[in-house]
């Protein structure tokens, strides 16, 4: 039997198309999503199948279409809002941070906001600092939203289908660097629940906790470290909100060491949150403090070599693991 492999972008496309066939309330809107098939071809062919009523090209106004989606969701529809890049969502901060995650609370439980905001997140393509945002640190601070960050095509499809069916606003953080990455995605339908981490690699010496694309760098580092006799366990968190802290605690109680790998800036980030919670929950189990691999506290560099070193990468992860194990 052949294992079907498809690109990350097509996994996203399949998730949206399947959910749109299943639920007439779901529609997609954003810049260039219809006629042009999406700036990154994620919505390829969707206009032809679903028509312009459900695949909608918007004016270039992020605040406009994000805010409009809130109104549509308040009336029971389920919009998928595509930001060409999460970097561009900053001009829509008011609707996505100040309205959508608070609407249920501030309307006394009256109006929910079942919206998926999705788009490219993260650096690594020499797009310069204004176009290379990792928004997870900034946005995950806000209660009322959920945040998913898939690490490969299989995860992308299963998590996006769950996001579309979720009754709360979901921030779905994709990776432009992985859009062309191929991976196994079965023909048959599946969903991946939120708040349940995946053990991407089992190991006994140290726990690597990561989110999204850097999970792959952790696996790369783990393979290199295995040759040195270090056995890493790698957790793919899948969602940042809700955070599956129990899986992390379970793993750390086994390995007694933990490294968090997070592509956002370190100050007030998912990485710092994980570190704080692990320190509180596993205080007596730890052989060393939780080590953290983040991007440096500078704007994303433009130069190739600087950008590569700025990002969490296998080399930096390997160094952190060695330090945490007192091998450095």
């Amino acid at each position: 039997m052949t294992v079907r492999e498809i690109e990350y972008r097509d996994a996203l496309n399949e998730a949206m198309s399947e959910e749109m066939r299943r639920d007439k309330r779901v529609f997609l809107l954003g810049e260039e999503v219809a006629q042009y098939d999406g700036a990154y071809k994620v919505s390829r062919g969707m206009l032809a199948e679903f028509g312009e009523r459900r695949i909608i090209d918007t004016p270039i106004s992020e605040s406009g279409f994000a805010g409009m989606a809130i109104g549509a969701a308040m009336m029971g529809l389920r919009p998928i809002v595509e930001f060409m890049s999460w970097s561009f969502s900053l001009v829509a901060a008011d609707p996505i941070l100040n309205n959508a995650p608070k609407m249920l609370y501030m309307s006394g439980g009256q109006f929910g906001c079942p919206i998926v905001f999705r788009g490219n997140d993260g650096a690594g393509g020499q797009l310069g600092s204004t176009h290379s945002w990792c928004v997870e640190g900034l946005y995950s601070n806000v209660p009322g939203l959920k945040m998913a960050i898939p690490s490969n095509p299989y995860e992308a499809k299963g998590l996006l289908k769950t996001a579309i069916r979720d009754d709360d606003p979901v921030f779905f953080l994709e990776s432009e660097r992985m859009l062309g990455t191929k991976g196994h995605v079965p023909e048959e339908e599946y969903l991946i629940p939120f708040g349940q981490a995946r053990v991407a690699r089992t190991g006994k010496d140290i726990t690597l906790v990561s989110f999204g694309r850097p999970v792959n760098f952790c696996l790369e580092a783990a393979e290199a470290l295995a040759k040195e006799g270090v056995d890493c366990e790698v957790l793919d968190m899948r969602t940042i909100r809700p955070l599956d802290i129990e899986s992390i605690v379970r793993s750390v109680k086994k390995t007694n060491r933990c490294v968090v790998v997070d592509q956002s800036w370190s100050f007030g980030s998912p990485g710092s949150e994980v570190a704080a919670q692990v320190h509180a929950r596993c205080f007596d189990d730890l052989d060393n403090f939780v080590h953290r691999v983040h991007t440096a506290d500078v704007p994303t560099p433009y130069a190739t070599n600087l950008e590569a070193e700025y990002m969490p990468n296998a080399r930096r992860i390997t160094e952190a693991v060695r330090a945490c194990l007192y091998l450095a």
Partner: peptide, 24 residues
């Protein structure tokens, strides 16, 4: 009726989305 909107301006987009949903 929607809740009173105190931030200046957000409700105009919500109104547009609500009407768009009606049209949909």
């Amino acid at each position: 009726a929607t809740p009173i909107a105190v931030p200046i301006g957000t409700q105009m987009l919500h109104a547009t989305g609500l009407a768009w949903a009606s049209k949909y």
